[in-house]
Structure formats: structure tokens, C-alpha cells
């Protein structure tokens, strides 16, 4: 049991390797450059550009979580992941809810 625990400490809890950090860094750079090129060169129309910006930002957030914050390596029970999902839920409620409400506010004006 103890040795099992030990080996788990070594494999599951190393908190990343140089490889995972480099992959994360390279992916982040690529995901920063894509929307930048799209915006500065006016590659797409307005709504496509917004979609590109939002998708690359969300992907980059995932890259940070997986390759830098090692959210996947957490032991069960996964309190970190659960509380993060809670935060994202509140975040989306606040942001999308505010946009929704204030859109109708603008119509009233």
C-alpha cells in the first residue's frame, strides 16, 4: 500500500515535466498569434473575427489549465476542478446575464 502510494507520488504528482511546459508555451504563443493576425490583417468579417478571438482565448485558457496548472493531475476527489467549474458557471452567468439585460436596456433608450 505504502509503496503503491509512493509510486503514485512519483508518477502522478510530479507536477509537470519540461516537455509539458514547452508544449503549453508553444501552444499559447500559437493561440495568441492566430487572433492577432486575424485582427490586424482584417482576415475575416466582424462576427467571424469575434468567434476566432473567443475560441482562441478559451483554448488558451484550457492550455494554461492543463499544461501549466496541471488540473488533470489532481487526485480524487477533484475539489479543484469542481470549484473551478462553479467559478466558470458564475462567470458566464454574470457576463452573459449582464450583456443580455443591458441589450434590452439599450433598446429602451
Amino acid at each position: 500500500m505504502a509503496s503503491q502510494n509512493q509510486s503514485h507520488e512519483e508518477t502522478g504528482h510530479t507536477h509537470g515535466s519540461l516537455k509539458s511546459y514547452i508544449i503549453g508555451f508553444v501552444l499559447s504563443i500559437i493561440l495568441t498569434i492566430i487572433p492577432l493576425v486575424a485582427v490586424l490583417n482584417d482576415l475575416f468579417n466582424r462576427s467571424t473575427t469575434i468567434a476566432v478571438i473567443l475560441v482562441t482565448a478559451a483554448l488558451q485558457f484550457l492550455v494554461q489549465l492543463i499544461f501549466f496548472m496541471h488540473i488533470r493531475e489532481e487526485d480524487k476527489p477533484r475539489y479543484n476542478l469542481i470549484s473551478l467549474i462553479f467559478a466558470v458557471l458564475i462567470l458566464l452567468t454574470i457576463v452573459i446575464g449582464s450583456i443580455w439585460i443591458m441589450t434590452y436596456n439599450k433598446v429602451a433608450i
Binding site: T32, P35, T49
Partner: peptide
């Protein structure tokens, strides 16, 4: 911040 403030502002 970069995506929603800066990129969306200058596009």
C-alpha cells in the same frame, strides 16, 4: 483582457 478589451477594440 487582451482578447476582449484590446483585440475586440482595434478590430
Amino acid at each position: 483582457v487582451f482578447s476582449l478589451v484590446y483585440l475586440m477594440e482595434v478590430m
